[in-house]
Amino acid sequence: MANRIFKESQTYIGTWVMYFIILAEVPILILLIVLYATSEDKQEMAIALGVVLGTMALILSLILNLKLETRIDDDNISFRYLPFIRTWRQYPKAIIASAEVIKYSPISDYGGWGIKGNKTTKAYSVLGDEGILLDVGEKKKILIGTMKSKELTGFIENWMEE
């Protein structure tokens, strides 16, 4: 398996989360535009409309820019969760006691998707209910979500044997 590399990139673009946020924002915008049109104090309503539009744009921008990137090469398992974790977090093969692809419950096990966890367990996920669970020693576990569990399972089995 020398020089094989596993790469995965996950985003919210084109998922139900993005469409849900857009569908939630549209009625609010319509309501605000109607209120602006019927308001007597146009300046105050324009400020309110600007603040709400700005907030909605920031939320949508954040969701569209979230990206979980995973990279596994001969020596390391690396990941980053943009825009929060910009540099690659690397776990050398030598310190990984075990690595396995698991199915988990994001809500009951970790409290949802995103960056979750406590002192001993951290989870980094975008969507789905599958991930690679790393035991990196000192009672510390890392879960990195994946949407390519079948491909990753075979890759990890070969990677751990070498």
Rank of each mutant, 00 (worst) to 15 (best):
L133W: 00
R80F: 04
D135K: 01
V26H: 04
N65Y: 13
M45L: 14
M56T: 01
K139D: 13
F20M: 15
Y110A: 05
T55P: 02
M18F: 06
D73P: 00
L68R: 04
L31T: 01
L64C: 09
F84E: 07
N65S: 14
I30A: 14
V52A: 13
D109P: 09
P92T: 09
E162I: 08
R89Q: 13
A97H: 11
E157A: 07
P83N: 09
L32P: 01
V17Y: 11
G54Q: 14
L60V: 15
D129S: 14
D73W: 00
L127A: 10
M18N: 05
V26N: 06
G111W: 08
N76Y: 15
N158K: 14
L82I: 12
M147H: 07
G117A: 08
R80S: 05
S78M: 13
T87W: 02
P92K: 10
A57W: 07
L64E: 00
L49M: 11
L143D: 03
K103H: 11
G112Y: 10
E162V: 09
V136P: 03
L68I: 08
L58A: 12
K116L: 03
A94G: 08
A57C: 09
Y36R: 04
V26S: 03
N118Y: 03
A2H: 10
I63C: 10
I47M: 07
K141D: 13
V126H: 01
Q10I: 11
G137Y: 07
A57P: 01
K7A: 04
I63L: 11
G137E: 06
N158F: 00
E44Q: 14
I102Q: 05
L53K: 04
K150H: 12
V34R: 02
D129V: 03
T121A: 04
Q90M: 07
V17P: 07
S39N: 02
A46F: 03
S108P: 01
A48G: 06
V51R: 02
G111H: 09
G154S: 10
T87Q: 07
K7H: 08
R89W: 05
V136G: 00
V52L: 10
G117I: 04
S78Y: 03
T120N: 14
F20V: 11
